[in-house]
Amino acid sequence: MKNHIENVINWLRQQVQDAGVNGLVVGISGGIDSAVVAHLIQRAFPEDSLGVIMPCKSNPEDAKYAQMVVDSSGINSMTVDLTETHDVMFHTIKSATSEWNEEQEKLADANLRARLRMSTLYTVATNYKFLVVGTDNAAEWHTGYFTKFGDGGVDLVPLIHFTKGEVRELAKELGVPDEIINKAPSAGLWEGQTDENEMGTTYDMIDRYLKGEDVPEKDKQIIERMHHNTAHKRALPKAPPKF
C-alpha cells in the first residue's frame, strides 16, 4: 500500500502540473473514501489542498466524522451549509412542476443535494485555481453508484482502480481513524440510508466479482444489471452522427 500511495500522490501532482493549476479540493463527507482522498491530496499538496464539508439536512454525526478526517489528515478545510439553499431550490422546482411524481421525490431530492455539492466544489475550485477530486472507488464506478453530475462530476478519480477492500487498506496505511474505517458506508442522503441496503448487494460481493471470483447468482445479476443500466454515467454525452 505504501507504493500505491506514493504512486497516486505523484500522479496527483502531475495532473495539477499538466493542468496549470495550484492544487486540489475534495468534498469531505466523513466516509472512508473521502477520508482517503483528503489524506492523499494533503500529502500531495500540504499547503494547496482543501477539504469542503457540505452539510445538507445531514445527520450531525456526519460533521463529527468529517472533522475527524480534517484533524487526522491536517488538511485545510471550510464548511458550506447547503440546507437552506437546497430547501429553496427544491421547493421552487417542485412548485413550478405541474405533474409532480411523488414516487421519485426521494431520489430527486437526494440527487439535487449531490449536484449542489458538486456546484459548490467547482465554485471553490475556481476561486483557488484547484482541480476537483472525486472519491468513487472501483465498486462504485463499475455499478454506477454515484450521482451523474453530482459526486460523479469531478476532474480526477484517483480511487477507481481500488476495490472497497483496498480502500480500507489504504485508509489504514494513511492513518484514517478506525471509527471511519469500520462504520457502515453511507452517502448520508436520508436517515438510516446505507450503500449496501440501497444496492441490494455488498461491497465484498462487488469486490469479489471485480476480481473474477465466484459470487452467488443473485449478487451477480444485481451487479451486472447495475453496470448495464448506468453505462451512461461513465460515458461522454451522446451525440448523433454528423449528417
Rank of each mutant, 00 (worst) to 15 (best):
I32G: 03
V52E: 00
E196W: 05
Q42H: 15
M118N: 15
T123K: 14
G30L: 00
G23Y: 02
W100T: 02
A239N: 09
Q67M: 13
S186V: 05
D62W: 01
L12N: 12
K148G: 04
Y145S: 11
G165K: 02
P216V: 09
E196L: 02
E179R: 06
N3H: 09
D207W: 04
E99M: 06
L210D: 05
N101T: 08
I180V: 15
P185E: 06
V215W: 03
I53M: 06
G150D: 07
E169H: 07
T143V: 10
E179A: 15
R225E: 15
P237Y: 11
V80G: 11
G27Y: 05
M199L: 08
Q14P: 12
R117S: 15
K2G: 05
Q104Y: 14
R43L: 14
A19D: 06
I9P: 10
G188W: 08
K106V: 14
P185W: 02
M199S: 01
G74E: 05
V80C: 13
Q15S: 11
Q221L: 09
A138E: 03
M118L: 14
P216T: 03
A138R: 02
P55L: 00
A171G: 09
V16C: 08
V154D: 03
A184F: 11
E173G: 00
W11T: 12
E47A: 12
I93T: 03
R225V: 08
F146C: 01
A171T: 04
D204R: 10
G27N: 03
I180A: 07
L131S: 03
E224D: 15
N76M: 07
T85V: 13
G27V: 00
P46A: 05
K218E: 15
E224P: 13
G74Y: 09
V132D: 01
V25L: 01
I41K: 11
F45P: 12
D214R: 09
V124D: 12
G31F: 01
E6T: 08
N7R: 15
W190C: 03
T135V: 06
M54F: 00
F146P: 04
Q193Y: 09
I206P: 07
N127G: 13
R168N: 10
K2H: 11
E169R: 06
N3R: 14
D151C: 01
W190L: 08
D71Y: 08
D62G: 05
H227T: 10
I75Y: 06
R113Y: 00
E196P: 01
V80E: 11
M1A: 08
E191K: 13
T194H: 12
D178F: 07
K211A: 09
Y65K: 10
V167S: 02
N3V: 10
H39D: 14
A231C: 10
A171W: 00
W141M: 14
L131M: 05
S58V: 03
T135D: 02
D207C: 00
W11V: 14
F243V: 00
Q104R: 15
S72H: 10
W141R: 07
A171V: 04
I28D: 02
L236R: 11
D204H: 06
I181M: 14
I181L: 11
H227V: 10
N229Y: 07
G200R: 03
I206N: 11
L131G: 02
D48C: 06
H4S: 15
R13S: 14
V36Y: 06
H227M: 10
L50A: 04
S95Q: 04
D155P: 13
K211V: 00
E169Q: 12
E6L: 07
